[in-house]
Design a protein around this nucleic acid. Structure first.
Lengths: 195, 195, 195, 195
DNA sequence: CATGAATGAGGGTTCATTCAT
DNA sequence: AATGAATGAACCCTCATTCAT
């Protein structure tokens, strides 16, 4: 019989890779990176331990690939790729999108917070993360400048920290932290909407 | 030599225990909990592995004791144990004290963030933590109420999140996050000082 | 296209088999038998892992087939199939041929030495090897007898050992062991040329 | 109760280390380095797998330590630490000592031959080995020079190779290679005893 | 109070081999 | 004839914990 075609193999690979990454993310996020063993991941994904190493070089590589993919997704959402200045409408939109994102990608975020203090991982990801971070800050600074604020950088940093803190609080105890009812207050405090 | 008295023994015990906890915290914070082995802690503390088990039941127990002690210390600082309403001066004071605390107890905070997603740890600490958290929020709510704000709860939650986010950002990259220059802006935004 | 004939298939098979054996030998010799994985061999030979098992039953079988083939080649060179006594000229020739052989088939020899202490390999090859060995010794014994030496067996064993030792030294560090400049001395010591 | 003294610990360590090295050497020599698992060594030595790593950093380290120790022993025997020229008597002595050594330290030699073609190991040991080798050659060269031979270097290299070959043959099949009855012939051929 | 040799379960990883296509 | 995804046993190694001294 003829062997599978290149494309068939490619498809199998993509499917399996996604399965493994999803399963691993789930476990990493809920139990932590170190306490999650390769065996556990393989069992939950219904594959053999060995197969995992067909797709990822190591446990660390698996984590990194998950994180990178997640980061890329976030960048896609966060970054309006807007070289000009945000309109006020865009700004309001931006806030609600981020907060929605946190709720939807709950697992990713949990993983992020859990993993950013793993020294080794952080080392590798921090570069990408800081890129995202500084883009966001720059965008905000521009917005505040265009609104004539005296200390646009401080505003931007503070606002960034606030979003971070909200995400963190929500991830830690979703039932205690009512994201929705806060948006209006945020708008009042950080959007400087001209009436 | 005269045999040591009961109290002397007790003192030795306390000193050793503190030494072990400090050493362990240092390592946990800088290398992570799981990657830090008991051997490494013992070596750095210049004691034998066996002795460590004389003071702590297990590695997890050690971590928990460190975390609990740290939390207690923070509670002592954060909680003015003030049943009345904060004055504006106290409020301003409170902010700068918290931020100073983050800088001073850098290691503790790092450990907290790194370890809060370990299910077991979280389970045990979350109760105490939430107690602290809700006390803080209540205090802030009172403050905002007394200043006639419309949505005192939202204000309080937002402010709490902001402080969290600042701590988080500072811990992650102290060189990128200039805590000091932000206090003024915070004051403007969250203290509602009556001129 | 016309279907291939039986012979063409056979030819393809032989070519592939030879390719695999050559590739494997190369790797076994340079990296060692155990550290060389089937994957690596397949990759270097530009075939799939599966195909290799179409030609060889197992990794061990592959090794054995390589060794056997190599041994056969050597036997063909070493054994003049001469039932009579070597002439002096033949003897001199014999020496230089062996030494040339070592240089040419460098890889084979390296593999031999590396692998001769693997119990299983030794088990299977030792019979053939001893056949070769005793033939060589017998031939030499005859030669020495015909030259009237008192202890022809000792001479033969010693000479055999010397050749072995030279091969061994050359294989281990070719740059340190100058085979060529030794032939004359060997001739003086072991050929007993009648002037 | 008081802990053991430093010396007691040291003694335990030395004893265990020797036990492990002996056991491992036995197995490495008879089954080969790679096919011998740490588990097997531990089981045969009646210790836990873990303990082995209390004494040796890795399997490779264990092998290296065994080899180095063996090499040191051989150097001690081979090297007369004689800056002057060997007397004829010493030379004869030297030969029989080496051959006895091969018989006595059978296991070590087998390990040497089996392991010298493991690329990684060789890399590390070759330096030490060459030191020994060149010392031996130098010693022999001096001897031959003092006996007025035309080509002392060739003589020395050849003699060295012969000894190597004899050792190799003996190790491979002791029953086929009668070391004892060869010494006289060696003496005749390589000692140049002045009558 | 104090030591570190010893354990053993479990971790991450490799790899010869199989098999559906 | 040919592919490479998939398996699973075995490997090397780590480390929290115990215990005799």
């Amino acid at each position: 019989m003829a062997p599978r075609t290149e494309e068939q193999f490619e498809e199998i690979r993509e499917t399996k890779k996604a399965l493994i990454m999803d399963t691993a993310m789930e476990l990493f996020a809920s139990e932590g990176y170190h306490p999650t063993s390769i065996s556990k991941i393989a069992k939950k994904a219904n594959i053999s331990k060995g197969l995992l190493y067909n797709y990822f070089e190591s446990k660390e590589d698996l984590l990194l690939k998950i994180m990178t993919a997640g980061l890329a997704e976030m960048i896609a959402v966060f970054d309006p790729d807007n070289d000009g200045v945000l309109t006020e409408e865009e700004m309001v939109n931006f806030i609600s999108e981020i907060l929605q994102m946190v709720k939807r990608k709950h697992k990713y975020w949990k993983l992020y917070y859990a993993v950013f203090f793993q020294p080794k991982v952080n080392e590798i990801l921090s570069e990408k993360f800081e890129e995202l971070y500084s883009k966001m800050v720059a965008m905000l600074v521009e917005y505040y400048k265009s609104h004539g604020l005296e200390k646009p950088v401080q505003e931007a940093l503070l606002f960034g920290a606030l979003l971070d803190g909200m995400a963190f609080n929500y991830i830690m105890s979703p039932e205690l932290f009512p994201i929705e009812i806060l948006t209006e207050t945020i708008k009042d405090k950080f959007c400087y909407i001209r009436k």
